[in-house]
């Protein structure tokens, strides 16, 4: 078993965007830490694999319909966890726009494309915080945002994705101060990990993936469950009780000066 067994035993966590990729890996890592894991997804039928991974790791999966751009859905997901399990200890906001892996033609695109990114990564970051606040205050819990190295260095290909991921870093730094008196910790993780888009690239453009891997001192892209999951679990656990307002870059050493 990988991860941090027992670290989140009996704790209740909501992970958004948990149907695949980093979200699924992080959810499974919370499972291996003993958590009750709310698997927030737009389409519940797409969450079966994640639920199986959480259960196999030793956690308790709860599939929740949670399109984070829909205020009622995200509120209901949180309320359901609290109703059924009596508490909420952490929210991990990992969901991104379905267009996040697309290139953005900044000079010619419109605000509609910006809205696709901002609604999921900026507005939902704020809204989930507001909705979870009373419960996180009670549990003295944690809010974790899955950001990106692109949100620190800026991406030529993905200027909107970069910008909204940067938004989360600014949000974390300010909210950590605002919620510090409530003992709610607010952090972010900037992972470099295998994603569905990269899996696809491995098939279509294997040389490109090799080039990317060549830039990583540890020689490979991160595994969502075993590389990105444990640091994420740690940041939401009591072991990180004195860590707030931080962005932890988990990139195998690819980004060392951000």
């Amino acid at each position: 078993m990988s991860g941090l067994p027992g670290l989140m035993e009996g704790r209740v966590v909501l992970v958004t965007g948990a149907a695949a990729g980093v979200g699924r890996g992080v959810a499974a890592a919370f499972g291996s830490a003993g958590a009750i894991v709310g698997i927030g997804v737009r389409r519940p039928e797409a969450a079966e694999e994640t639920a199986a991974a959480v259960a196999a790791a030793g956690g308790t999966p709860v599939i929740l319909q949670c399109d984070v751009t829909d205020a009622a859905q995200s509120a209901a997901a949180i309320e359901l966890l609290v109703r059924d399990f009596g508490r909420l200890d952490a929210v991990v906001h990992n969901a991104v726009s379905g267009r996040s892996s697309e290139a953005t033609d900044f000079e010619n695109t419109t605000l509609d494309e910006w809205e696709d990114h901002a609604s999921v990564t900026v507005r939902a970051t704020w809204r989930l915080a507001v909705q979870a606040y009373p419960y996180l205050q009670k549990s003295q819990g944690a809010y974790l945002l899955m950001s990106s190295p692109a949100g620190i260095e800026g991406s030529e290909r993905a200027p909107f994705y970069s910008a909204v991921k940067a938004a989360q870093r600014g949000f974390v730094r300010a909210l950590a101060r605002e919620w510090g008196p409530d003992h709610i910790r607010v952090n972010s993780v900037a992972p470099l990990a295998i994603s569905p888009a990269l899996e696809n690239m491995k098939i279509l453009e294997p040389e490109r993936v090799k080039r990317i891997e060549g830039l990583v001192p540890l020689g490979r892209l991160g595994d969502p469950e075993t590389d990105i999951g444990p640091p994420s679990v740690f940041l939401c656990s009591d072991e990180a009780r004195y860590v707030t307002g931080q962005t932890l870059v988990v990139s195998g050493g690819r980004f060392t000066s951000l």
């Binding site: 900026v122 704020w126 800026g154 938004a167 989360q168 949000f171 974390v172 730094r173 300010a174 909210l175």
Partner: peptide
């Protein structure tokens, strides 16, 4: 530094800086 009470401002500023 981050500023309590100014989460929207801090969020906007970092967004624009990275844009």
């Amino acid at each position: 530094t981050g500023v309590a009470g100014l989460v929207p401002l801090c969020t906007a500023v970092e967004t624009i800086r990275v844009m």
